[in-house]
Design a binder for these strands. Structure first.
Lengths: 165, 165
DNA sequence: CGATAATCGTCAGGTAACGAACAAACTGAG
DNA sequence: CTCAGTTTGTTCGTTACCTGACGATTATCG
């Protein structure tokens, strides 16, 4: 309740506010990304992995999961795909044989050089006409909301009722 | 948040701005929704369908797809699931036998009465402390960005290059 | 040292979303 | 009336997320 008088009654879409628009933007953005990447046979998440490897060099798979905010299991599948396409090498970790080190193959490096930067393009289209102040506000609102939810769920998970001190 | 030295410069997450946070908020929000709904054996989108049917009464499947911004194919699966759970009836349309009318079953109505409203709760937690003005700005930024991207993709799809007179 | 605990990657199973291709049903031109 | 085209829902294949469980490994502590 709190917020928005929200006036009207029907329209499940509108009624939802930030959540609904965050969702719609996420999917629209992903669609744009993927249609830009389709000619190269890449999915959006695959692109992010290549981006990371191209910019920060070889990376431990475990670290990559954190950088991209993905679960280990999710990343595992993506990496398998990229290895199958021969764009990424997955080699056994140096000291620790549980870990895997990821790096671009020659073919991966070559492909990366040819790739456009769809992120920059999409950002230009989507937020070009938006003022920096508004953009910053939007980021802050989303970030704070995410943080509050994360914290709340962590607390609930712990059975951590603040009143139960 | 506590930890995260973050702050610094490159970091693939940050670098993306609104897009990355829209994504993170979307997934965090969905996780919260789903953990609230898990005890009832419902997924988030299934909940939205019930919400719609409970509030606006029986609805044509085709209209529901529009209301919830889903593709026919996506909704088809969701509906199948709800029918299998005996929460929704899918009956042949009156005049047009291609169409399907959806409505809650008795069991569906009963379950709905017992359900909490996780949306309201989540909104309170996520946006309670955020000013209305900031919330409205965030919505506007996301909405405008979505519209620009949609328009751009539609134009590209049509092969509608302004320079190609 | 050896049992136990934690970490890492993978697999299996589930949800949600998409597009392409299809059959059935409707619509409209001729 | 008939046949081509459209609409509606379904099915299938793909991507991308998640959990939970498991095997292999490494770390820790009694």
């Amino acid at each position: 309740m709190v917020s928005q008088p929200e006036a009207s009654q029907h329209e499940a879409g509108q009624h939802e506010g930030v959540g609904a628009w965050a969702k719609r933007y996420y999917f629209t953005n992903r669609e744009a990304l993927e249609s830009a990447l389709r000619p190269f046979g890449l999915g959006s998440t695959q692109w992010y992995v290549l981006y990371q490897l191209a910019n920060d060099g070889p990376t431990m798979q475990r670290d990559l999961a954190q950088l991209l905010h993905l679960e280990r299991a999710t990343l595992s599948g993506i990496v398998t795909t990229l290895v199958r396409k021969n764009l990424v090498d997955q080699v056994e970790g140096a000291g620790d044989r549980r870990q895997r080190m990821l790096e671009l193959t020659a073919a991966g490096t070559e492909l990366w050089a040819k790739l456009p930067d769809p992120i920059a393009e999409i950002r230009a289209i989507a937020f070009g006409p938006t003022s920096d102040a508004d953009t910053r506000t939007a980021i802050r609102v989303l970030r704070e909301a995410t943080e509050r939810l994360t914290e709340h769920m962590a607390a609930a998970g712990r059975g951590d009722d603040p009143r139960t001190s």
